[in-house]
Amino acid sequence: MIRIENVSLSLQATPILHDISLTIPKGGVTALVGPNGAGKSSLLSLIARLQPLQTGAISIDGLPVDTTPNRTLAKIVAILRQDSVVASRLRVRELVSFGRFPHNRGRLTDTDRTIIEQSLKQFDLTDLAGRFIDTLSGGQRQRALVAMAFCQGTDYLLLDEPLNNLDMYYARDLMRSLRQVADGNGKTVVIVLHDINMAGAYADRIVAMKSGRVIADGAPAEMLTTPVLQDVFGFAMQVATINGKPIVLHHL
């Protein structure tokens, strides 16, 4: 369980987050949605201790993120930032292998190797495993980064807009993989999404943020309604129902 209590954040005197309290239960997929600048990425960074806490408290499975040793946390939570740039000339397999670093400190075991191969396979990277990262397309690189986060084998997976750069095929593929690890392995996935319909189709719970506050929170069926979405995004959009699932016609 991720417990966030009274967290506020300001950067260079600009307030980013206002007194956020939120509990994300263990297991399942939680989507963070909201307009640009709502503070979704900042919240994710705070949970992943990339950004030091200013006020409030955050704990994962009872471990406070600001005092727990970094290495312990790395075995519990993995994060993928949206603007990850890999400047190093590493091969795909090497990059993915570094996901195992918190467990082996660099000495690969057979278990590690199996997990690495699994991750490569899961994200359709087996054929690309020997290629250098800088020779890949943006989408392929994104998949390699997601595979590395997967490979870390943590109970919690935080992903900041992982669908960036992915085509329809791989975007759907990634969401299905996330669903699968949540259902099959009992992992907890927290994901920042821009595509509200992806959130509706794959998340168990949607948390909507705006101007540094959580303004709505609930199951997709409760969230994907015209009034809630108008509140969050600032314009009225039609919501249709296909096969019992809400589909937002946000582009019309």
């Binding site: 992943a48 290495r71 790395a74 994060i79 990850s84 570094f98 670093f101 660099g106 986060a149």
Partner: peptide, 21 residues
């Protein structure tokens, strides 16, 4: 510390995410 240096090259966020000091 070669392995750790390789991870450092991935940037601060990735390093912390992998439990590196």
């Amino acid at each position: 510390v070669a392995d750790r240096l390789t991870i450092m090259a991935l940037g601060r966020d990735a390093s912390i995410g992998l439990g590196l000091d």
